[in-house]
């Protein structure tokens, strides 16, 4: 199975490990990730204003390229996934946005929302299957108690993202189980860490991040996993807690368990 792959800017810099471990693991699992040639930053934040066309264009370009390759577009970073998936939804449902965006596009064929946007975890669940993943694990993470940190961007709005049940998700827990570790379910796993405002509202971001950490610790997690570089930064750097709670990228633990 071949996917067009959209890494996103942070995965080329601070979150290199998220990207590289993801590629190594995919290769080991027989999934080919073909990085898009000329991808541009998705903008990191989904443009909520209906009149903001320019911030949607980089996503549309990536989506149109995948359409031309007749492949699904795979993402790894939660923020990129959120932005691209929602822009795709806009193109499908909002005539005005579709027409205006296409008037800025170079290609011959207007983009109508044909591409399917797939997150790395969805690929593991739907293309590979968690049972199969379990069979491929070389070094099971036995004994590790891992809290899945979903955050907001993968899950909400549930109707658009249709990633998992937004209030009671299970995909990361299934992933953790497949890696041979024990998932820890804690109530703040789908509450916001406040990463979005970390630059100018440090105190607020620190408080929201700490709530997540406290909740995970109370329920007995040894570490957290996330797919979002911003969440990882905010929880790891800004969050304060009584006990040390490391945060890993999903692909880091995957690569470790696959021994790649």
């Amino acid at each position: 199975m071949v996917f067009d792959y959209y890494p996103g800017c942070t995965l080329k810099t601070e979150a290199r490990e998220l990207d590289e471990a993801g590629r190594r693991s995919a290769a080991a699992l027989g999934i080919e990730l073909q990085e898009l040639d000329a991808w541009q930053c998705c903008g990191a934040v989904y443009p909520l204003g209906r009149d903001e066309i320019a911030p949607r264009l980089s996503s549309v370009r990536a989506l149109a390229a995948a359409r031309d390759h007749r492949r699904d577009l795979l993402t790894l970073c939660s923020a990129c996934h959120h932005v691209i998936k929602r822009v795709n939804h806009d193109i499908r449902t909002d005539e005005k946005i579709r027409d205006t965006a296409n008037s800025y596009m170079e290609g011959e064929q207007a983009y109508q929302g044909e591409t399917k946007v797939v997150h790395y975890l969805e690929m593991l669940r739907d293309t590979l299957g968690f049972d199969e993943l379990k069979n491929r694990i070389k070094k099971p993470l036995t004994g590790m108690k891992i809290g899945a940190y979903y955050g907001c961007l993968l899950l909400r709005p549930g109707k658009v993202m249709s990633f998992d049940n937004p209030e009671n998700p299970s995909i990361m827990e299934s992933f953790i189980t497949a890696l041979g570790a024990e998932p820890v379910i804690y109530p703040y796993r789908n509450e916001c860490c406040g990463g979005y405002i970390t630059v100018k509202e440090k105190d607020q971001a620190a408080r929201t991040a700490s709530r997540v950490i406290d909740s995970a610790l109370e329920h007995g997690a040894d570490c957290l996993i996330t797919a979002c570089p911003l969440c990882l930064y905010n929880i790891d750097v800004n969050g304060t807690s009584s006990k040390d709670l490391p945060v890993y990228y999903i692909t880091q633990l995957l690569a470790q368990a696959l021994d790649v």
Binding site: T13, E14, G43, A44, G195, V199, L230
Partner: peptide
């Protein structure tokens, strides 16, 4: 350690 994403978000 601040990720690029944080700055892009802040500017946005």
């Amino acid at each position: 350690r601040i990720p690029q994403q944080a700055l892009t978000s802040a500017f946005r």
